[in-house]
Each structure stands twice: as C-alpha cells, then as structure tokens.
Amino acid sequence: MSGLVVENLAADLGGRPVLAGVGFRVAPGETVALLGPNGAGKSTLLRCLAGLIPASGGTAAWEGSGLAAMTSPARARTLAYLPQDRVVHWNLAAGAIVALGRLPHGASAGRLSPADAAIVANAMETMDVAHLEDRPASAMSGGELARVLAARLIAQDTPLVLADEPAASLDPAHQIRLMAAFRRQARQGKAVLVSLHDIELAARWSDRVIILRNGTVIADGKPDNAITAETMAEAYGITARIGHDECGLTFTPLALTGNGD
C-alpha cells in the first residue's frame, strides 16, 4: 500500500464526534487540497494524522505502517505538520526558526551540518524568505511569518507534508508561490495534504480535492469533478458560478442557498 491510506477514521473532541468514517488516499507525487466549511473537521483530521489527538476508530498508515503506532521521533521523520496558529514564543530570527525543521534529523539548531544548512537555505529560498534570515520574529509581518513557518515545514523534508490553512493572510503572489512550492515538493515524490479556504487556489494548484462536511468526506476527485454546484451547495450552502478559462477552474460564490437574494 503506497502513500497515505486513511480508512474509516473517527475522532472525538471533548466527547463530541468530529470525524466519522473518513477514508481517502494521498499517493506520493500528489498535492491534495482539503476543503470544507468552518467546523467540518479539516483541522481535526490533520491533527489526528499528525498524532496530536488520538483517533477513536479507524486507521491511518504511511507506506503500510500505522501512524498512531510510530514513536514520536519516527513520526517526525515521516510527516511534517504546519498548524493553523502561527506561534513563535521567543524572538528568534527567521533562519533559526527554519533550522528547527532539522531537529528530527538529529541536528542541533545551533550548529547545522553543511547538508542541513543547505536544506534550510533551500527551504528559505523556496518560500522567498532568504532575505529575512536575520530578521527577528517580532519585526516580521503576518505574511512574512507565515512564509517563514512554511519554510520550516519544508525544511523538515519528510515524505508526507500536512499543512493547515497555510495560505491564510498571504498576498496573491505568495499564495501562488506557496502552492507552487507544495506542487514542487510533490513532484519530488512527496505526498502533500493541505487545507484551504480559497476554492480557486485549491482547484488550480492541486491534483485532487477532498471536501469534508460534518466530519465526513462528501467529495473526493479531480478538482473539476469534486467542485460542482451540488457539492458547493452541500458543503458550504452557497450557489456559485463555476467556469473554466485557459488556466483552469474559475469560481465565484454568489449567494446562500435557500436565500432569495
């Protein structure tokens, strides 16, 4: 069984079931976007895969080995996870933040080997933050910090990459740069699962789209097949104009369903 295989996954938060019967696959080489309204369970799914909350049922495995059974160091070399909230507690410079991504590979963040330093420099180049290397976190804008933290994710250099709304608060250019970076990572043989709220961005930059609603998968397929008037109405309760241009799918939300205007 190759790549990420999730079967019948269930999870509770505070006794309330948040995920139920979730099943999908992400193959190496694929970028998969996770869509769905607020509270659909996107973050819970990613946190559950990252081993941060226990599953109440079902399995998730990478290349045949269960993620839940892995030791934390082994899991940290299998998957990298970028949480939604962007926290940097001390006033570290960007270079030091990105270097933390090398910790699971035995690097001490203070003294990087030339190989680790090259990976860190490459990750910073990818996210367009190389020029921020010495800038402390307190002197970065929200978007700059988001890109630095995404560079940390890339520097961890794991076969499976999980990112929770990494595009939020990025300008359009950096959204495209971020998605292009994820796609490039996938082209190198990684499996990328990224939750997004921007449906056009998801449609244009991912190989496949999974739509969650109330903790279950309601659509899973190529963007053109998954993003339809029906699924948008079911997931978000909206009507939308869905079209195509030479770059791919176009999407304009119009109104709430069941609402006259």
């Binding site: 946190r47 990252a50 081993g51 941060l52 934390s72 160091p73 899991r75 940290a76 070399r77 998957l79 990298a80 996870y81 970028l82 949480p83 909230d85 926290v87 940097v88 507690h89 001390w90 570290l92 933040i97 933390l100 991504g101 910790l103 699971p104 001490s108 963040a109 933290l149 940390r152 961890q156």
Partner: peptide, 17 residues
C-alpha cells in the same frame, strides 16, 4: 533540543518529535 522545538508551540514541537 525539546526546549528549542517548543518555541513553535506544543503542537509543532510534538510534530517535531
């Protein structure tokens, strides 16, 4: 090393092993 990882919050630190 664990203290360094915790700079990025509990969740990220745990995902860093």
């Amino acid at each position: 090393s664990a203290l360094d990882a915790l700079t990025l919050g509990d969740d990220t630190a745990r995902s860093l092993g």
